[in-house]
């Protein structure tokens, strides 16, 4: 019986040589072919690492992506890039601008998915950014409303999801971190996500973070996916209380390590928290992973955190089986 499968949310840190290569490539000092070679190298290393650690469902680590919205905006027709806007503090970025009708000219993630799946027998997740989040994190000069924008994006993300499924992906994750910001638009987010997942046979997952979960919780059963992945660790597992009242009719991706702290959680604390979660969810309902993408941690910290995810989960699995 499969239960308490381990996985990660998506991004993994880029090794120093790749971070340097990316910045040189941006300045035109590095041949794109050489950058591609280094991205492949880093992907290979992360897949080997995840296998060694014993992660059940692998990710490609997104070594070739920068920002989770910009990566898709750069490949879709209809998007332009703005000049700099501030994100917080002294951090600036170029925000995508929807200037024309959005079209998917070519696959955006499928080539990398095939490359990663070719390196391992374990299933590799397809990783997409959801239509509501792409809409919310872009300027829109073309579509008449936020709804029209989200629905147009849903069509192209759906094409990509279908392509991943045709290529053989058994798990497709569609991240919607923006969904929790405007709860008055939850129906739109659900409608758009429903277009993406409709008719897919692959297992569908959505990851949601940084929001007001007390308000979002009652809506979770309406999200048109098989699994909802949430951050539990950085909220000290207080979220479990919400699920004591609400019966979740979906699988749960259980974030058990905090991606914002340098400290590697102890096996004992993760085991204790998993046991708390088992009082609320059934073992076959739970997938165990870090809270969010690990890309802001160092490689060593990320490996340490993934290791404790696997070791704690194994310990709990064994107790359940004996």
């Amino acid at each position: 019986m499969s239960m308490l499968l381990t996985t990660s949310v998506g991004s993994l840190p880029k090794p120093d040589y790749l971070a340097t290569a990316r910045s040189r490539a941006r300045k035109g000092e590095l041949d794109p072919k050489e950058l591609r070679r280094l991205e492949e190298q880093a992907t290979r290393d992360w897949i080997a690492r995840q296998e060694e650690l014993g992660i059940d469902i692998i990710v490609d680590g997104e070594q070739y992506r920068g920002d989770m919205v910009a990566y898709f905006a750069e490949q879709l027709e209809g998007f332009q890039t703005s000049s700099l806007v501030r994100s917080y503090g002294n951090r600036y970025y170029r925000k995508p601008v929807i200037a024309k009708k959005i079209r998917r000219k070519r696959p955006m993630t499928i080539g990398w998915w095939k490359f990663a799946q070719g390196l391992t027998k374990r299933p590799v997740k397809g990783m997409l950014t959801g239509p509501y989040t792409i809409m919310d994190w872009s300027f829109n000069e073309y579509y008449p409303s936020r709804r029209a924008t989200a629905l147009a994006l849903a069509e192209v993300v759906r094409e990509e999801a279908k392509g991943l499924e045709r290529a053989g992906a058994q798990y497709i994750q569609i991240d919607e971190p923006a969904i929790s910001t405007r709860l008055d638009e939850i129906d739109l987010a659900i409608e758009a996500l429903g277009i993406v997942t409709k008719g897919l046979r692959a297992k569908t997952i959505t990851h949601i973070c940084y929001g007001n979960f007390q308000a979002l919780a009652p809506k979770l059963n309406r999200l048109p996916v098989d699994q909802i992945d949430l951050e539990f660790a950085n909220r000290k597992f207080e979220l479990l209380d919400a699920f004591k009242r609400l019966k979740l009719r979906k699988e749960i991706g259980l974030g058990v390590v905090d991606v914002h702290s340098h400290r590697i959680e102890s096996r004992e604390e993760v085991v204790a928290n998993l046991k708390k979660a088992l009082k609320v969810f059934k073992p076959e309902q739970i997938y165990v992973d870090p809270d969010c993408g690990l890309k802001t941690r160092t490689v060593d910290e990320a490996v340490g955190k993934l290791r404790v995810v696997v070791e704690a989960t194994r310990a709990v699995r064994e107790e359940l089986l004996n």
Binding site: R86, D136, W137, A178, Y210
Partner: peptide
Amino acid sequence: GLERWFDNNVYYR
């Protein structure tokens, strides 16, 4: 720590 600035994809401390 960082918190979201109302309903924007912008953060503040």
